[in-house]
Design a protein around this nucleic acid. Structure first.
Lengths: 221, 221
DNA sequence: GGGGGCCTACCGAACGTTCGGTTGCGTTGA
DNA sequence: TCAACGCAACCGAACGTTCGGTAGGCCCCC
């Protein structure tokens, strides 16, 4: 008897997104053809267009949903947290964790902006979402510097350095590798707080269960 | 009267490389056609093939020369430098500086490995060159940890974090931006040494004139 | 006069996308 | 109860365009 949750992966739309994020992350958007995608989900190239209006719209959908998930999760995580060093620690841990847990989606989010037609609605929208996310970092660093708890030569410089460190995780992290996700996050938080000369780090660690689990992120590497 | 250095940019090979690195960095290798490249250097697509054996060979050439330049410059910079913290500082400053000064070439080097046919001679060669470069980092961190001057939870983790910080520079640095190249390098060195808990940083700063100037790197942004 | 440098013209293949058609399931009306 | 209908899901074939690459010839300079 079948006790499982019905037809989980019969939803073609989800399977297409899943294959798309895998191929876009591995080969890049431009090097991935609709036929590649169709083969991966056992459809013909024409069949894809029943579920997707265009190749670029598919990319835009993935990027939009990814950014919204990140922004929402970040807002939930930071909710009520006051100390700038706590906020920065949460930002570092969560950005690192999402890049480790959803490396394919984040690689597409971080690297395929240039594949959206410049000036298109989708392109502008993704830029706005990215800015909205980065504002969390800007505010945390500005608050910390304003309160004198961070001593930092250049807020923008520090932010870019730390964000690069976190986003780079999607390029090398493997769940079965040498370090656990918790170790990576802890180490990166330590580096980040040292970078802004924050005094000994305190209090709560990030509740990673608040992070989004993108339903289309393939489970494998 | 023309007092300039003769026919600098009449060398078609160089102009092609210059345009290629610009287009590959901006649009990606897969999204750049031979015809795009030809238009950029005022040739026809067929004319390109008089100077280049294939599109992929052109990419491989750029990546190979870029990596060799980086490796050679790093060896020169580190020559005779003993202290692990000095070596690490030089590695951080030089990797940051080359990504700031040659953002297009480094973006291609860092991001287009996947565009080389897997298993091809060129692909394997570039991987070997990248490993050869990273060994400089591995040795510096191992030496520092071995001598007890670095206190670091995980050498690989620290290396990846710091290298991501440095390579990220090519994505945002602008010569006319808020911070000078020297400021960026100094700040990143400070962050890096704090990351490995090195005691107060000492001695020589990097002689950036030892870094390679890729002749094909376009001067503009 | 011969070769480097570049052209016009073209090839076969692959591209994103569209179109007309078929299948099969769920709902409806008599 | 069952024919009739609607519609989501998909396919095979083709559209026009662009792709990486090639063949052969023209021109200019040594």
């Amino acid at each position: 008897m079948d006790t499982s949750l019905t037809d989980r992966d019969t939803d073609a739309g989800l399977r297409i997104r899943s294959a798309a994020v895998l191929l876009f992350a591995r080969q890049g958007y431009a090097a991935t053809s609709i036929r590649d995608l169709a083969r991966a989900v056992n459809l013909t190239n024409a069949g894809i267009y029943h579920h997707v209006s265009s190749k670029e719209a598919l990319l835009a959908d993935l990027m939009r949903a990814g950014h919204r998930g990140l922004i929402d999760a970040t807002a939930r995580l930071l909710d009520g947290v006051q100390q700038p060093s706590d906020r920065l620690a949460l930002l570092i841990a969560s950005l690192t964790a999402i890049h480790a847990r959803s490396p394919l989606t984040t690689r597409v989010m971080d690297g395929e902006l240039r594949s959206l037609t410049p000036g298109s609605t989708a392109h502008d929208e993704i830029i706005a979402l990215r800015d909205e996310y980065e504002d969390h970092w800007r505010r945390a660093l500005a608050d910390g510097a304003g309160q004198g708890v961070f001593r930092v030569a250049d807020q923008k410089l520090s932010r870019l350095a730390l964000m690069s460190m976190c986003t780079g995780t999607s390029e090398w992290y493997r769940p079965d590798g040498d370090s656990s996700l918790e170790q990576v996050c802890a180490e990166f938080v330590a580096i980040g707080l040292a970078a802004v000369r924050a005094p000994a780090r305190p209090t709560a660690s990030a509740d990673l269960s608040l992070l989004p689990d993108f339903p289309w992120e393939p489970p494998d590497a």
